[in-house]
Design a protein around this nucleic acid. Structure first.
Lengths: 346, 346
DNA sequence: CTGAAAGCGCTTACAG
DNA sequence: CTGAAAGCGCTTACAG
């Protein structure tokens, strides 16, 4: 089946191809009657503008990109990424813009991807997540001139737009919840040390801890994986003053710890309360179910998409904030030494 | 930063732009010396061919598409989809081909997506999953002439290529495992009734059941969701001859049932053994952990990608088979009436 | 081995 | 209100 072009339409209607273009793009220069006829014929033929031709002449790719820079393991177990991708795609497609997706396992590959995307005019802009400590990406993207929205960053980025994170609220809420239950020695199993938000969460928890009398923090790195989460938990529990509660930087590590409670020699929540910084089905199905901070990833992704579209269009857009996280209290948190809950699953 | 074109390179080197194009595409028509110089200058300038210009003149989008046609809920909880997307992208990007991703919540939208992609020359081909009963997609794609690889289909598709599923092997292995433990009344909680592979799995289990003396099947539909899985389980357990084991069409439903065992009034595996047709972290972290069929989604996605690339290139490719699923036996399956396992979690 | 030219399918000033 | 023409950045026969 030959795909029709505006020349086919022009021939059928008996006008020039410029007239067809004007009519199809809703611009002046064609009589209402002719426009109507052109639209009919185009619809009848199943015509759609060639994305390549349009991109070439309009200098717009009508596409934006995101690089997922995580190990396959984390990518597959954390629902966050699919929610992010789905949320972006849904909003973008409503605006006729498509999403370019790439994976990267190392920084060099990721940088090359941005460079190639931009040089090939494949994208009009990008969304960047998971900023790392001394991250080379902002510099490259600034040099290239690629419009960029940074997702979940603490500080404004000169020349770019930011969807700000809310670590301090979460940290305060988490500690308030645990302190109220009577916990004072609180552990923190962290994500990868090279991620900026790992550092920010650590700081946020430290600052929040000062607001609560006698709360003492201890930290260990778990790298977002199941094995890492269990290992870090074991490490924290080995201290003389072992924590009675642990905050995990993601759902995967928290759930892995709960699932390995027997191996770790603890009962949850009697010996150890568990809080996850992310919520997902994982937190709901383990026993005890895990107290977690839910957040609207799809909504935040939609916001990021809209910000990027405006940034591409106008060259600037106001920074915004991620939607607030909500504490979902479940059976994994209780007073230290509390009895088993009525499910008897601990 | 102005993005360089072949004209900039031609000017710098002092040759025609055709010569530049030949050199960059490794074709004849340029001396080795000139070619060398052109490649150097191109690299120095950070030049990459404009994807739009190349697509327009070569009539190749260098892009293939996949539509994810599931509810956001299923999309976000089943790790399958991200593994699929990641597997495709990884292989495609090695061949310089990008992946177009779209979501669709209804058939009309999905059909429109294929039509638009093709009319806009956005994709050179598509991968189609989750064929439905009396599915309108093959007809549309055949009419459009879009090269298509069908993922996990039972029968050959005239004019297209198929990555065949292996329901019969799984069904036989599942029943063998359960029958050997002493189960005879076996339930089957199914996925959405409108999916072809739901029907095929039902048939496969029925056929396999005939190979095992006295095995009786009972079925209920769970629609792949947590709520649906629990509801269907309750329904099967309400029968006079309630099953002592249930096979679930996905991990989400199986895990939801295990997590709701108390509500359902059963102990797993003492009163009910549980098997999931898919494996994931969910199956590992619930207690008891769920016996499941693992499969190499990333590998199968890579195979699908390679098949599609060849199909686009040559117009034909041999059908192949999905990689075999492997039974991962865990604590959720045991002899009917068996004692609690040593974890004491049941 | 090399260059001038046409063409891919659009968009968009510019004349009429 | 309409049409002829140039241009976006490539590829690729076709002459030399």
């Amino acid at each position: 089946m030959k795909r029709p072009t505006i020349i086919d339409i022009a021939r059928e209607v008996g006008v020039s191809k410029a007239a067809v273009s004007y009519a199809l793009n809703g611009r002046g220069g064609v009589s209402a009657r002719t426009r109507q006829r052109i639209l009919e014929v185009a619809a009848e033929m199943g015509w759609r503008a060639s994305s390549a031709a349009r991109a070439l002449s309009s200098d717009r790719a009508a596409s934006v990109g995101i690089v997922l820079a995580r190990s396959p393991e984390v990518l597959h177990t954390e629902p966050f990424f699919m929610q992010m991708v789905a949320g972006l795609e849904r909003t973008l497609s409503e605006h006729g813009v498509s999403l370019q997706l790439a994976l990267a396992t190392d920084t060099a590959t990721e940088l090359a991807t941005y460079q190639h995307w931009w040089a090939e005019r494949r994208v009009d802009g990008v969304v960047v997540t998971d900023l790392r400590v001394s991250d080379p990406r902002p510099r490259l993207l600034r040099e290239l001139g690629t419009p960029t929205v940074y997702f979940g960053i603490a500080h404004p980025m000169p020349g770019s737009s930011v969807l700000r994170g809310n670590e301090h609220d979460v940290a305060r809420t988490a500690l308030a919840h645990l302190a109220q239950l009577g916990h004072r020695r609180i552990g923190h199993v962290q994500g990868p040390r090279d991620l900026q938000h790992t550092v920010r969460r650590e700081e946020a928890l430290r600052e929040a801890a000062e607001e609560f009398d006698g709360v003492v923090l201890s930290q260990a790195s778990g790298g977002y994986t199941e094995e890492g989460g269990v290992r870090a938990t074991r490490q924290l529990l080995a201290a003389r003053d072992r924590p009675t509660a642990i905050v995990y930087d993601n759902d995967v590590m928290a759930v892995a710890a709960v699932a390995s409670a027997d191996d770790l020699g603890v009962r949850v929540p009697a010996d150890l309360s568990v809080v996850a910084w992310d919520d997902s089905m994982l937190c709901r199905v383990v026993r005890p179910a895990v107290t977690a901070f839910a957040h609207g990833v799809a909504q935040d992704a939609a916001t990021a998409a809209l910000m990027l579209l405006e940034l591409v269009e106008t060259g600037a857009v106001e920074d915004r904030e991620l939607s607030p996280r909500r504490l979902v209290s479940r059976a994994s948190t209780a007073a230290p030494g509390s009895q088993q809950n009525d499910n008897g699953e601990n």
